[in-house]
Design a protein around this nucleic acid. Structure first.
Lengths: 224, 224
DNA sequence: ATGAAATTAAATCAGGTGCTTGAAACACTT
DNA sequence: AAGTGTTTCAAGCACCTGATTTAATTTCAT
């Protein structure tokens, strides 16, 4: 394996483990049996390394997402279409490919960067994900035509949150559940998340401007 | 306002904005009109500052969560109890208090730290959140007795993910939705998330060991 | 007012950061 | 085998980090 590939590989692994700022070029190059200057020679800067990782991984995930979406368009299936679309969206992001946990590791990286490098992350995600995500928004939208836009986007937002949390934070629920639930089991995670979010998407629309849920004591605190 | 309080306040704000490592003690003390040594004099180290922030904020959120949980125990309400429990859990974490976005800002900080300081974060969250979260697990569990443990914890896990994502990542969905959906509107976020996750919790249980959802072409790729 | 204790201030420490440099080593054509 | 462009290497640059130290200042009970 040539030096640039080795650098990208170990950089992605280390970034996703410890974050972007916490990982120094020195530690990356040491782990890759490469010299510090190699990073700048091949990529130009530390940030360019991150951008390259995004490019590679996003294009893979996007291609697979679109492939699966097309597949479930052809198939007029017995399983509900909503679930199929969700599967096409979640599977490429959460399920290991090539025996390694590459896609999932990247989604963890993406969640990490979102917090510690907000501006760059926003830009990268918008550049690489928004187009394909937009297609899924359309597809989901068509299945949920009774839902108002506002409710729909909120629920898509919650889906994203659950997806990233599953990819990034496999630890805590194991403690709370006493080990019953293991987010590193990606296949189960996808199945469970499809079921959960499909039900969430299908929930009755919110009754706007009358909050029936909050008890009176807290409703009085609401400021709009 | 005395120096330690000022330091904690600005530290929390800056940490939640840019992450823990990215914010230097120098920038914190400069923004607080204090000296670098004050941090070590009052708290001992940069990490102790973070721990102190966790202590203060977690105890506030925990107290409010328990108060609301007790409240909805007393009230044998017309609104479904599941929704009330979810409200008691989400409201204190997502809704601004004292006119400022303190609780929400802290949840954002918590999400940030989870990724860039995994070990410390795990320990702090376990120390400050797990006990109260355990009570909510019990309460939710009692409302969902037909659900098997595994499904239940997965769904609680997804709820956590959606909650943190809403607190931490208010930007993206606005782009995708064309501004229709605004996660910084905490009241709406809580309402929507309650509705979404309540439906998710109530979804039919998964049919284990027979994946009805995934199309055959991808099921064949499953390795267990 | 005074002396002790709590607090702040400025200078400094050792160590780590991303990045640059100029020379050496390599691969490959002619 | 010489010469070419590409890649690697060790050393060093300027800068920033958290932490420490020493001295000055403030606070406050006596």
């Amino acid at each position: 394996m040539d030096t640039p590939s080795r650098l990208l590989e170990t950089a992605e692994e280390m970034f996703s483990e410890s974050g972007y700022r916490a990982v120094s070029l020195r530690s990356i190059t040491k782990a890759s049996n490469a010299n510090m200057a190699a990073v700048h020679y091949h990529f130009g800067s530390k940030e360019k390394v991150l951008e390259r990782i995004f490019e590679l991984r996003c294009s893979a995930i996007n291609a697979e997402r679109l492939r699966l979406l097309d597949e479930c368009r052809l198939r007029s299936g017995a399983p509900p279409v909503l679930e199929q679309i969700l599967h096409a969206y979640l599977w490429p992001a959460l399920v290991p490919e090539e025996g390694d946990q590459k896609a999932r590791r990247f989604m963890r990286l993406r969640a990490t960067i979102a917090n510690e490098h907000a501006e760059l992350s926003q830009e990268l995600v918008a550049r690489h994900f928004n187009q394909v995500s937009g297609k899924f928004v359309e597809a989901l939208r068509a299945e949920l035509d009774q839902l108002c836009d506002e409710d729909f986007f909120w629920r898509f937002h919650f889906l994203l949150g659950a997806q990233y949390y599953t990819a990034a934070n496999p630890g805590r629920i194991q403690i709370l559940s006493g080990g019953l639930c293991d987010p590193s089991n990606a296949n189960e995670a996808v199945d469970e998340l499809i079921r959960f979010s499909a039900a969430g998407f299908r929930a009755a629309a919110a009754q706007r401007s009358t909050a029936v849920i909050a008890p009176a004591s807290t409703i009085s605190e609401v400021q709009r």
